[in-house]
Write a protein that binds this DNA or RNA. Structure first.
Lengths: 199, 199
DNA sequence: ACAAAAGTGTTCCAGATACACCCATGA
DNA sequence: TCATGGGTGTATCTGGAACACTTTTGT
């Protein structure tokens, strides 16, 4: 029993308050599994091919399906998260708002499932760390949540909640942007997956 | 690029307050994907092969991995839930407590991941319906939760909670078992997946 | 002085938790 | 009458939700 097997990648980032997805020529990046190659190695190779660099990010297997396009072929889909600050610049031109796809996009089922998984995950783990730079303001965190979940939250309640979880640590530094009050900056205590009730 | 591809099944049931898994000869049931066959068809075929009958149950894809045993082969793992009352009798002899595997069991990573997924799922959906007969007492429901989550709960609080969700409907009938007060019986309003905060 | 984003507290309500006794039945 | 599991209510605590004004900076 032989089969062709591909890996596909849904690469997310949050930029300017929007959830962005990488898609070149309206296709998700993809790579065949080489003969005898281990799935995890292929996953790493696909990431390197796509990003060109080894960037800090979060990767997770999404699901496996018979290829909706190529009959007889099977696809293992992954999703990855990367802070927009660490996205290599050659990808920027092909990052598009996740909402802008819809109708015609071939892999829209994959995409909408990926968004759903991301929404769940963001609510009960700390993966948000993978979408933020090393140092950030609380407002940044809130904007990332809002972009992913698609609704806006009360600033005071959000701060109370996120601080009470103890995931963050004050840096003691401040960040000035434009003509407004400087924000205190924070960083994550641990940049690794933890299960916590966020919302 | 050609590959051999198998499907494996982790079949769960709850019996006598214990979470049980089907494994024959210390292996999970498995089936190759036929050439050109659609993954969903193969999944159905694997279920039929294993259960011999079409039983009411819940099935979900778990994840895909390079086969831990057979090098160069890829396995797509599914997990299924079946009420012990509707388990065909030829399976009963090979149902073992999920906790009894551990150490030597070849596919123990798969199994422990499956248990984890089941625990999560049971907390935020109504899948528990797939592990209960059509008619049951509240005590039965509680025992299933306890078997899956591995800790015991307060009876009064559990009842309040589960009834407040509105998933259940009183049948108006009672069920007598042994020398104790007959229990009022309930059934699920909907026997299909719904997302609800259970615990 | 004004524009822009940061920062901050209190009240209220719902849901979670802790907890102990009586009930209906069959042996 | 006793053993077995079924059934019930209250008090307290905690966490979520709603809500508006002051602060710091640059222009």
């Amino acid at each position: 029993m032989v089969h062709t097997l591909h890996l596909s990648l849904v690469l997310f980032s949050v930029h300017n308050g929007k959830l962005m997805v990488y898609a070149r020529d309206n296709r998700l990046p993809s790579r065949p599994l080489a003969r005898g190659e281990h799935l995890d190695d292929a996953k790493k190779a696909l990431l390197v091919e796509t990003l060109k660099t080894k960037n800090p990010l979060y990767v997770e297997q999404l699901y496996t399906t018979s290829d909706p396009i190529e009959r007889g072929s099977v696809v293992v889909v992954y999703f990855a998260l990367c802070a927009s600050e660490s996205l290599p610049s050659h990808l920027l031109g092909d990052m598009r708002p996740a909402q802008s796809f819809q109708a015609a996009f071939l892999e829209k089922d994959i995409l909408s499932y990926a968004i759903q998984r991301l929404q769940w995950k963001v609510e009960y783990t700390n993966i948000i760390y993978s979408l933020l730079p090393l140092e950030f303001a609380l407002g940044d965190v809130q904007r990332v949540y809002e972009a992913i979940l698609g609704y806006s939250m009360d600033k005071r309640n959000f701060r109370k909640k996120i601080l009470s979880l103890g995931l963050l640590q004050e840096t003691g530094r401040k960040r000035k942007v434009g003509q407004s009050r400087p924000a205190e900056t924070y960083c994550f205590r641990k940049r690794s997956l933890q299960y916590v009730n966020i919302l």
